[in-house]
Design a protein around this nucleic acid. Structure first.
Lengths: 415, 415
DNA sequence: ATAATTTAATTTGACGTCTAAAATAATGTT
DNA sequence: AACATTATTTTAGACGTCAAATTAAATTAT
């Protein structure tokens, strides 16, 4: 049950939807904001003036568009998010590296940087210090002080704990429970949050139609690992501790193939790059896989071999498709989604995977459930994790920073 | 993204939380309503007067309680839900029978009735007519006209489609896509909704602390079949078409044991009454199971045999536990819940099931996820489906009927 | 008995937000 | 130059909450 409602809630909610409208549709006239949000022109005027006063919004200084001769009446003046309202940093932790992106409030990336970090062998303390150094350098390079950055959103591969602010388990680290938020917040005093990388991919994929989509969807990431981001009733779902949708480590076959995570039978052990490669090469699936990522060119060669008639390779892709298909079948039975989006570099080999994938879904789920769900493929964009993290972080700002304080009336001080 | 907020939203939301507070905590004084909802005494006065005016609430006529001698000041007058505000009917469709319960607005069951119906062989039309007759008789027996009943909430075993208002697939019917809502709504003009029985069990289990619980939980039903109700962020989750959490027909083993639904490898084929019985009796799991429910006394005997040293029986329960455990492991990996509740007659044999169940969860899920979730057992209550359907239906009323219309001001007519 | 105290509930007056309707602004058309 | 059209702002009013003051109904103290 949600809590009580009052005028403050109304205020926050409406300012939030106005910002959200600009974020997903770009700059527009006040009239259009009204049409899109359902708020009256009068309210839009009030809200826009307040947001402009708060430096969250600005009026664009454009010469009126005269391209459409049938256009009459007073020309519109468009408003947009004020890029200078705030800066945020999106940070991606993956095997062997940290990637940073500095973003303004409008979502434009101002600077980005990849730094190689030998994450795997690092202890918690060492990683914390490294992170601090890397962020400090990044700030210096962009002539920023910590107080100029409002939030740092972190995406990490593996099981993240958003409550404790740690990476509970990740292929990027030998050690477990690596604190990430704490070293950042104490060093810089910047608010920080952590999430699973697959959830951030889902944020990225959904960023476009977040405004309109209110259904349940699963975004599957296929590549060096297998991940999933769940969108439930329009919102990316993070679970009790932020570890939701660990699709790659959802069990596929009890006592099955050995996985990077040290257990057996995970979906990833069949459907990730290394899993596919392992079965294509007829290596035993009971041995621990290598901890390093598979070279993309190797996977490309394997795909082409499969397409060229290499039966072992083709069988490996079919096995992967079947694993993902059964995993999706189980997810569908549980969640009854209306949409599945396949994404990530693994979709390049979709032609090899799809038949087995569809067959598995058909075998694994009652018809009534199976026919409701549309399966789509998203364009492969390696930046999706950063993009999604940016989207999630900025949306978080929308709902907190600029929609919070009530306007102070100054009747008192005027006397 | 939710839509715009205005004073009407505030009004609905606050009236809703007041009704909800009374529903889950029973009658109480206005002060306590204020404390519980966070609304000011002034607002509670206003809201209470309006709800009383709408006949949704009433002031209790009690002699002040003098048992506590330290009690001073003006005594409280408690308010409660007005039982006469509305009547609703909860309806349960199961194999071979329809059960009805007539309930007042306060949640008290006024009358209930079971009618034997040969559902399995029935076609859609015949079932529709039967339903109409049974409801008509029930209304007559209670001296009610259709217009006296505001809503009929239906719970059915199997895959329900809340959008189409049908039973898409159910062990209760040989035929598929049986319309349920349409024959009721057209015959009586009463609003009607349909949901899966396991979701209604979850409603029942959560009804107590719905007001406070905002986490993610899975309620597992074990018995003649296996079902699940998912509670996501405090609300029972129904999925895109109302078919969510078909745990029983979530695939366990590809190409595994034959299930009532006509497919192979469903969890239910291992962990339901008939699945357990089948494996205890060493019958082939590749043959279609009987369509009728297993006699409870047979299951009781089987349990005792297992406890008494019957190795086949014990192994069958262990197999069931393992199936449920792996299913839960998969669910945990996907949803990262904080709570699992085991319920239903099957929990009577929990001692036989639990070791294998826990072992499977340990094997099937990363430690980081597994340790976050508490596993509880709910008291076995065969009425849970009806109870939950009542709770869900009344809550639906709370949020629609009595929280809708704005107060009409009559300044116009006073001139 | 009567006054003081305590707790519950209501009334009053102010505030914040939204909206319809009227007014104003800025342009194109006749 | 007057009129038409579209965008935005201003104005006046409605609705809902809340803090503070008031009223209500009991118990305790004197």
């Amino acid at each position: 049950m949600r809590g009580k409602a009052d005028s403050d809630l109304v205020r926050r909610q409406n300012r939030h939807i106005v910002l959200e409208a600009l974020r997903s549709h770009g700059p527009m006239a006040r009239v259009d904001l009204g049409r899109l949000t359902g708020l009256s022109p009068a309210s839009i005027t009030t809200i826009a003036n307040q947001l402009i006063g708060d430096k969250a919004m600005l009026e664009l200084d454009e010469t009126p568009d005269r391209s459409d001769p049938s256009r009459r009446g007073r020309p519109t003046t468009r408003v947009d998010l004020n890029p200078d309202a705030a800066h945020v940093i999106a940070m991606k932790i993956s095997i062997g590296g940290i990637e940073l992106a500095l973003v303004d409030f409008s979502g434009k990336i101002i600077a980005r940087k990849k730094t190689a970090v030998a994450t795997y062998e690092m202890g918690a303390d060492e990683f914390g210090h490294q992170t601090q150094t890397i962020i400090q350098t990044f700030l210096d390079e962009n002539n920023l002080k910590p107080c100029d950055v409002v939030h740092i959103g972190v995406a990490a591969q593996g099981v993240t704990d958003s409550v404790l602010g740690t990476v509970a388990w990740s292929p990027a680290f030998k050690q477990r429970n690596i604190p990430v938020i704490e070293p950042i917040e104490t060093e810089f005093g910047i608010k920080c949050s952590i999430a699973n990388d697959a959830n951030m991919i889902a944020e990225g994929v959904m960023a476009g139609d977040r405004y309109s989509y209110t259904g349940t969807a699963a975004v599957v990431f296929m590549g060096y690992g297998v991940g999933m981001g769940l969108v439930i009733e329009g919102k990316v779902y993070h679970g009790a501790t932020g570890a939701a949708a660990e699709f790659g480590h959802m069990n596929h076959i009890p006592n099955g193939a050995f996985c990077r995570c040290g257990r057996s039978g995970c979906l990833e052990a069949y459907a990730s790059d290394y899993g596919i490669l392992r079965s294509a090469e007829n290596r035993s699936d009971q041995l621990p896989p290598p901890s390093s990522a598979v070279d993309p060119t190797v996977m490309l060669a394997l795909e082409n071999a499969a397409r060229g008639g290499d039966l072992n390779a083709a069988a490996a892709y079919a096995k992967a498709g079947s694993a993902i298909g059964f995993g999706l079948a189980r997810m569908i039975a549980l969640l009854n989604p209306d949409r599945i989006v396949l994404a990530g570099p693994g979709t390049r080999a979709l032609d090899l995977i799809e038949p087995a994938l569809r067959a598995a879904i058909e075998e694994g789920v009652v018809e009534a459930l199976r026919t409701q769900v549309k399966i789509e493929t998203a364009p492969i964009n390696t930046d999706m994790i950063i993009t999604g993290t940016i989207a999630a972080t900025l949306r978080h700002l929308d709902s907190t920073i600029f929609s919070s304080g009530p306007m102070k009336l100054q009747t008192e001080s005027l006397t």
